[in-house]
């Protein structure tokens, strides 16, 4: 298969030999979905779905936890299991039983928000992962970034926090190098990778799904050979849906886990 991006547009002709209209490969443009307004201040579809996700999560979670009792109802049981995944599986394991409870609301919010918005990528009628737009991962990363620096500085003071970057017991000559490395890790690498990992996975996954679905649909409009080819293409698309469901869950989990790990690192007495 040859994908050729031409300068003329952002379209490519693959089935030109068949004499059809040609196949438009998905481009990053498919993520640009302005709903109201245009240009730099347009309100995008992802923003609307993001808002919907917040409302949906709020309503459902409040409803399921409102009458939380000693003996849980079915709904509460489901809610507790979901909540425990973030509370015990991430926050308590990473931060430790002493301080974790304070960070559970933040980590649980992050986890549920990312998970639902990721799954929006394979859920009709949305079919678009919110975090495929870099602005959203950056926003969440910004929150995590501020929180873990804030608690570190609050605990050790500004000087102590920077001193804490260098592990104790190192020979003097290596300390500056380690400091630079650790500084880069703490202030640049961590936020960058945190945001880009989530964005990249959602972006690429959505691209793949769109590619397979649109290719399959295109093949159906072509001759018999291509019609047959559409079958494995759709099978592949279905497989990608399943795969994406897993990746989307995993990315939500990883994002929350790393956030918890950064918080734990800032809280820890030593490396």
């Amino acid at each position: 298969m040859i994908l050729t991006a031409l300068a003329a547009g952002t379209t490519t002709a693959v089935g030109a030999a068949e004499g059809g209209e040609g196949f438009e490969t998905p481009t990053p443009d498919i993520f640009w979905l302005p709903l109201i307004g245009e240009g730099n201040w347009a309100i995008t579809e992802q923003m609307v779905w993001g808002g919907v996700s917040v409302v949906l999560l709020s309503v459902v979670m409040v409803a399921l936890s409102k009458k939380a009792a000693i003996v849980p109802s079915k709904g509460q049981f489901f809610m507790e299991n979901f909540y425990n995944l973030a509370r015990n599986g991430i926050a308590r394991d990473m931060i430790g039983t002493k301080h974790f409870l304070k960070f559970v609301p933040l980590l649980f919010s992050l986890f549920s928000l990312i998970l639902l918005n990721n799954w929006f990528g394979i859920l009709p009628p949305v079919m678009n992962p919110t975090f495929g737009r870099i602005g959203f991962p950056i926003a969440l990363t910004l929150v995590v970034y501020v929180v873990y620096h804030w608690i570190g500085i609050k605990k050790m003071g500004v000087g102590g926090y920077f001193k804490h970057l260098v592990p104790p017991g190192l020979p003097g000559w290596i300390k500056p190098a380690i400091f630079v490395l650790e500084f880069i890790t703490y202030f640049i690498t961590r936020p960058l990778t945190l945001a880009l990992r989530l964005f990249g996975n959602m972006f690429a996954g959505h691209m793949l799904i769109v590619l397979f679905v649109s290719a399959g649909a295109f093949f159906l409009t072509q001759g018999i050979a291509f019609k047959l080819l559409s079958v494995p293409t759709f099978i592949m698309a279905a497989a990608m849906f399943v795969f994406e469901a897993l990746v989307q869950f995993l990315q939500a989990y990883v994002f929350t886990l790393l956030a918890a790990s950064y918080i734990a690192g800032a809280l820890a007495d030593d490396h």
Binding site: N40, T44, M47, G51, L57, L106, S109, G135, F136, P137
Partner: peptide
């Protein structure tokens, strides 16, 4: 980043955090 999305992302996590 599309700036409105970045800001709205902050609002989203802020609102959800408050509710949670």
């Amino acid at each position: 980043p599309h700036i409105p999305e970045l800001i709205f992302g902050l609002v989203m996590i802020g609102v959800l955090y408050w509710v949670v």
